[in-house]
Design a protein around this nucleic acid. Structure first.
Length: 353
DNA sequence: GAAACAATGAC
RNA sequence: GUUGUCAUUGUUUC
């Protein structure tokens, strides 16, 4: 059914070119970072996201003027001398669909631009070497591919799922381990130092400064890449053990052939994460179950078909009601496609819309 | 091909 | 009303 090919991790031409240049390139990363072209691209991205101001109150709209007034030149020379100190991020809590809160850390606009510029430099160095089973926060990859990959693994007689939930992953990333991973590919001391400063920049919670001795801020443009660099070790470990799995950020699922194997794997991986990556597995939310009972990125898997998880389905039904109340029959197919393009992979009979 | 806009999904 | 990142899709324009 799916002739939808999942891209391999083989570097594309752009990456290959830069990798070949790596030695010269790498000693010079900090200068690359400050290239006007790189910074301009970073600013465009930050602007397009239309985010809110950080603790300095500087908005996206006011930022270009700030740049022109020479403040950027001062900032740049501080950066070049290694004397630039990033501001703390602003704490904002937003509701999660499950009723919990997501803690965001919003950097100032200028720090978002600098972080974005760093991410643009680091991505070609790291991303081409990430696991084929890692789907979150990566160019040319998305949740749909992750779900299809899981379905394909299940077809290979792996009917049991190990759902692993990392508690507060982003908040608990270990700085030392992360920097160690970074040093493997980044030799530029100035760049490493700057990234370290961003990790330790702290958080403002109601005008109260809180140090950040661990974790990466959810809201920083660099954070998604750093999280993937951190969990790349896990991917490589799982691969070396011959496991079949898919990972989307901190959400990952390992497919095995029996409950017993699953229990063993969960235990082993839990210990690996605790000792090697200093990450805590949430035992309450982790489970070994038949794939039909599993949940990954809002989907569940039954008899080779991808289905919505009950909760996701409920939300979908609400959406359908709203859309179809007015236009029922006019363009059902189009509406359905708009609501959820992955629909054609779902067993509609069994979900009984 | 590029660059704007919007809306959706994941965290 | 407040509110980040990443990815994707669609539209438009040249």
């Amino acid at each position: 059914m799916s002739n939808l090919s999942i891209p391999t991790t083989s570097p594309d031409d752009y990456y290959r070119q830069r990798i070949d240049m790596q030695p010269a390139f790498n000693s010079d990363l900090f200068q690359q970072l400050l290239e006007p072209e790189n910074l301009h691209r970073a600013w465009r991205q930050v602007k397009a996201n239309k985010g809110a101001a950080g603790i300095d109150g500087m908005t996206i709209e006011a930022f270009p003027l700030w740049m022109q007034q020479g403040d950027w030149q001062r900032c740049k020379s501080l950066l070049e001398r290694g004397e630039y100190n990033p501001s703390a991020v602003r704490r904002v809590e937003i509701d999660k669909p499950d009723g919990g809160k997501r803690k965001l850390g919003i950097p100032n606009v200028i720090d978002r631009v600098i972080q974005q510029a760093i991410a643009q430099i680091l991505t070609p160095l790291f991303d081409p070497f990430f696991s084929a089973n890692s789907f979150g926060f990566r160019p040319n990859r998305n949740a749909k591919q992750a779900v299809l990959q899981v379905r394909d693994i299940i077809k290979q007689k792996r009917k049991f799922a190990v759902d692993v939930d990392l508690s507060k992953f982003f908040d608990r990333v270990n700085h030392d381990l992360l920097m160690t991973q970074l040093r493997i590919k980044v030799q530029d001391k100035r760049l490493l130092a700057l990234i370290g400063k961003y990790l330790r920049a702290g958080v403002m919670v109601n005008d109260q400064f809180e140090a950040s001795l661990e974790g990466v801020p959810q809201g920083g443009p660099l954070s998604p890449l750093l999280s993937n660099i951190m969990l790349d070790s896990l991917d490589k470990e799982l691969e070396s053990r011959g496991h079949k799995f898919a990972r989307y950020a901190d959400d990952f699922i390992i497919l095995v052939k029996s409950i017993r194997a699953g229990e063993r794997v969960l235990k082993s991986i839990t210990r690996y994460l605790a000792t090697k990556l200093k990450l805590v597995v949430n035992e309450q939310k982790s489970q070994v179950v038949e794939v039909g009972q599993s949940k990954f990125l809002g989907f569940t898997f039954n008899r080779g078909k991808i289905q919505w998880h009950a909760k996701t389905l409920h939300i979908f039904k609400q959406k359908m009601k709203r859309l179809t109340n007015r236009n029922w029959g006019v363009s059902m197919g189009y509406q359905l496609f708009k609501v959820c393009p992955v629909l054609k992979y779902v067993d509609i009979k069994r979900t009984s819309l």
